[in-house]
Design a protein around this nucleic acid. Structure first.
Length: 462
RNA sequence: GUGGGCAUAGCUCAGUUGGUUAGAGCGCUUGACUGUGGCUCAAGAGGUCGCGGGUUCAAAUCCCGUUGUCCACCCCA
C-alpha cells in the first residue's frame, strides 16, 4: 500500500501533552481573570449558517471563511461521477455553513436568540476559530480565541472594564512590557469629516492603520493611490500624529470636530473612558490613547483597542472594540455591546519568546512499579488505593524486566514519584517512595497515600 | 494574490569541486543485564533523496518546471 506522508493541514498544528498542559495553564489563568470580573462562560457551535456570517466581516474576512459545501446539490453528482460538469449560478446554492471566523458574530447571534438574559450580560467564550489566511509567523488557520464581552450597556464603564481585564490578563500571564492602544471610531469619523474626506472614509482608515509601519510619507502615498486628495490626507495626518498627553490632544480636537456629526461624542466618550480607567487604577504605562488605531472589522462603532508587546514582532495580542449595531442586525432592535479578543496562539508565541511558560510538568503524580508476577497484585491494589486517595497514579501497562525500564518510563513522562513494592517491602509491610537516585524513603504500607502526598508537596515546594 | 528561503529515514538533521552500496542522533523492534544515577551493550526494520523533465560516462548534489512548506507584503489574534 502506498504510504501517506504524515502532515497536518496548512496552518493547523498538533499539540503534544506538554504543549496542551502549557496551553491549558494559560487558558486557566485567562479564565480566572474573566471570572474575577463576573463574566460567565458560553459556548456556540463550530459552524454557523453562512447567512449568519455573511456581510459582517468585511470583504477580506469573508474571503477567508472556510465554507462548507451544501449536501445534496448537483455537486454530489459530480463527486459520484454521475456528471462531469456542474453549473452554479448562485453561491448560496452550494454553500450553507461556514466555520466560525471569530466569536463576536456568533455571540451576537446568540444574544439575539436569548433575549431574557440578565442585562448587562457579561460573558466569556474560549473556543477555536478558523481563518483561511496564508499561514506565517503568529498567523494560523486554526486558533483559539478568548473573548470577553459586555452586551446591553452603552456606558464607557463597560469599555473601561474590558480594557482593565485585558491589562490584568496580560499581567497575570507575566508580561511586563505591553501597551493597549485605544482609539475611537467616532473620533476618526469626525476627523475625516472635518478634513472633508467623508466619502473616502474606508480608504483613509486603511491608510492610517498602516502609519506605524510605513510612516507619514507612506500613508500619504497610500492615500494618493486610493484617490484621496493630498490636502485632505495632510489635514488628517496632522491631527492623527499629534503628540502629548491625552487630555491635551482631546482639547485640541474640540474646535475642529465641533461641527462634525460624531466628533463631539467621540471626544466626550474618550474622556470618560480614560477617566474611568484612571479611577479603576489601571496602570498608566499599559494603555494609551492612539488616534491612529483603526482596526479592520466592519462592525466597530465606538472605542477600539488592541494590545501589543515590543517583542516579538507578531502583531497584536488582543483586539476588540464596541459594536453597537451588530446585534440589531439579527433582531432589528439595537443592543449595544463591547468586548475584546485575547489571541491564545500569539500569547503563547510571545510567552515562549519571554520564557514565561511553565516547566513541562506531568499529568501523573506517581508510578507504582510492578516488581514481578508475584508482587503484581499487591502493586495493583496499592495503585487503586492511591487513586482513591486522589493521587494521579499509574502502572506501566506492559511487561518489563526489572525496575530500570519502569524508572526510565517515569523519567521520560516526567512523573515525579515512584512507589516500589517488591518482595522486601511486602514482607516488611512497607512501600519505598522514590523521587530520585538519592531521594527515597520507606514508609509504612498503610500510610502510603499520606506520605506520598507530603513527599509530592515537598518536591513541588523545593 | 506578489516576492524570497527550504525540501534527504516516522522526527531533527549531516552529506566535500557531481564520483563506489546515502549517513548520524532520537524514536521503533528483538536480544543480553534477577531491586534503582533516568541506563548500557548487541542486532534489526525503516529511503522512488518532494514530484516531473533536462545536462552528464556519472546527479541527493547542476539547470528548468511543478507541488509542498516556512518567511516577508496585504489583512489579522
Amino acid at each position: 500500500m502506498r504510504r501517506v506522508k504524515p502532515r497536518t493541514p496548512p496552518g493547523m498544528r498538533d499539540f503534544t501533552p506538554t504543549e496542551v498542559r502549557q496551553r491549558t495553564w494559560v487558558i486557566e489563568r485567562i479564565r480566572t481573570v474573566f471570572e474575577r470580573f463576573g463574566y460567565e462562560p458560553v459556548e456556540t457551535p463550530t459552524l454557523e449558517l453562512f447567512e449568519t456570517l455573511k456581510g459582517k466581516l468585511g470583504d477580506e474576512g469573508e474571503q477567508l471563511l472556510f465554507k462548507v459545501l451544501r449536501r445534496g446539490t448537483a455537486l454530489e453528482d459530480l463527486r459520484l461521477g454521475r456528471v462531469n460538469r456542474v453549473e452554479v449560478t448562485d453561491f448560496d446554492e452550494v454553500v450553507d455553513y461556514a466555520l466560525i471566523y471569530d466569536l463576536t458574530v456568533p455571540f451576537s447571534r446568540f444574544l439575539a436568540m436569548h433575549p431574557t438574559l440578565p442585562m448587562p450580560f457579561k460573558r466569556y467564550q474560549i473556543q477555536r476559530v478558523w481563518r483561511g489566511d496564508k499561514p506565517q509567523r503568529g498567523r494560523y488557520r486554526e486558533l483559539y480565541q478568548c473573548d470577553v464581552d459586555v452586551a446591553g450597556s452603552a456606558s464607557m464603564l463597560a469599555d473601561a472594564e474590558i480594557i482593565a481585564i485585558t491589562v490584568e490578563a496580560l499581567g497575570e500571564l507575566g508580561f511586563e512590557e505591553f501597551t493597549t492602544r485605544i482609539g475611537h471610531r467616532k473620533l476618526l469619523d469626525g476627523l475625516v469629516e472635518s478634513a472633508g474626506g467623508g466619502e473616502h472614509f474606508q480608504n483613509i482608515c486603511v491608510a492610517i492603520d498602516k502609519l506605524e509601519k510605513i510612516g507619514s510619507d507612506g500613508v500619504r502615498e497610500e492615500m494618493a493611490r486610493r484617490g484621496v486628495p493630498a490636502e485632505i490626507a495632510t489635514g488628517i495626518l496632522k491631527q492623527v500624529t499629534q503628540e502629548g498627553p491625552a487630555p491635551e490632544i482631546l482639547k485640541r480636537l474640540e474646535a475642529p470636530l465641533a461641527a462634525t456629526r460624531q466628533g463631539p461624542q467621540g471626544i466626550a466618550e474618550t474622556r470618560e473612558l480614560l477617566a474611568i480607567l484612571s479611577a479603576m487604577g489601571v496602570p498608566e504605562q499599559h494603555y494609551r490613547l492612539d488616534l491612529r488605531l483603526v482596526r479592520g472589522l466592519d462592525y466597530y462603532t465606538g472605542p477600539v483597542f488592541e494590545s501589543i508587546v515590543t517583542r516579538p514582532a507578531i502583531g497584536s495580542l488582543t483586539g476588540g472594540g464596541r459594536y453597537d449595531e451588530l446585534i440589531g442586525r439579527f433582531t432589528g432592535q439595537p443592543l449595544p455591546a463591547t468586548g475584546t479578543t485575547i489571541g491564545l496562539e500569539r500569547i503563547i508565541d510571545a510567552m515562549k519568546e519571554h520564557d514565561l511558560l511553565p516547566a513541562a510538568g506531568s499529568t501523573t503524580d506517581l508510578l507504582v512499579t510492578i516488581f514481578d508476577e508475584a508482587t503484581r497484585e499487591a502493586a495493583l491494589r496499592l495503585a487503586t488505593e492511591l487513586r482513591a486517595a486522589g493521587l494521579r497514579t499509574e502502572v506501566l501497562l506492559k511487561p518489563s524486566r526489572g525496575l530500570k525500564q519502569q524508572i526510565a518510563y517515569a523519567s521520560a513522562k516526567g512523573i515525579p514519584l515512584l512507589a516500589i513494592v517488591g518482595p522486601d517491602e511486602l514482607a516488611a509491610g512497607l512501600v519505598t517512595l522514590r523521587a530520585g537516585p538519592r531521594d527515597q524513603r520507606q514508609v509504612p504500607r498503610d500510610r502510603a497515600a499520606a506520605e506520598a502526598r507530603t513527599f509530592l508537596d515537598a518536591l513541588a515546594g523545593s
